[in-house]
Amino acid sequence: MTAPTPSVDHAALKSGGIIMQKDDDFFAIRLRLPGGCIASDLLPKIDEVARKYGRGEVRLTARQGIEIPWIKFGEIEAARKNLAEAGLALGPCGPRFRTVTACPGLPVCRRALADSQSFAHRIDRKFGGLQLPHKFKATVSACPNACSRPLENEIGFCGNAEPLLYADACMGCGLCVDICREKALVLQDGKPLLDRNQCVHCADCMQSCPTDAWKTEKKGYAVYAGGKNGRHPAPGEKIADFVDEEQGMMIIARCLDFYRQHGNKRERLYDLICRVGMDEFKAAVLQ
């Protein structure tokens, strides 16, 4: 007698998040956790599913996610429903817009210039899981230290701020000059002088100033496009500076339009940009 065919939600299966293991009787379930953040009261649910359907094992992914391996084919649907009831969705895999990663950002990190978590969640809500020619990764970092690796994603955001000196408030202590890792500042006539070509907009000078003499002239996100890692890594290229969230969302939307229109199946954004040229890509995306 053959076992009854287990019920499987094929639409759910297709949307990704279920990954066949080396032994094809077993699958790993990937959770959708934008920014790698999860309410701690959901951890017992993950524990419960991992012990009930898997082998009591969870794995942290390279993109801040959690996967539960060793789920039998016939139990995928039950495990998925169990997680869904607690509000835990499955994370996209395959040729899709992947779960958006992010650094801790404001208000947690002392260096942060932006709320990278909330922007990452916003991007994920709007674009996460969309079907595309190939995998598409996006991330948000809250400052130029780039902890979430914006240059290694198809689209990477990097919070930044341009400093402006209010000389009257400066007492000439020179701390910002010593702090600046880019050597973009020198003391001249007892006040710091900024070389804008050296400045990477990290705001270390503003944050170090004991008299708040450095103010923010403009701030937002630098945008990098076309980066990837893997077997042929390539860094993304900066395509815009000081954009706000609205402009960032627009840039992603146009980028995806361009990618869907011109990208070949299984062609990464990097390869598409190499093929058609950065100028054409930028013209379409930045308009």
């Binding site: 002392r110 701390l175 010593d178 702090i179 270390d204 944050q207 170090s208 004991p210």
Partner: peptide, 10 residues
Amino acid sequence: DPAATANVSR
């Protein structure tokens, strides 16, 4: 250290 100086003063 200048970074420590900035952190402490902040």
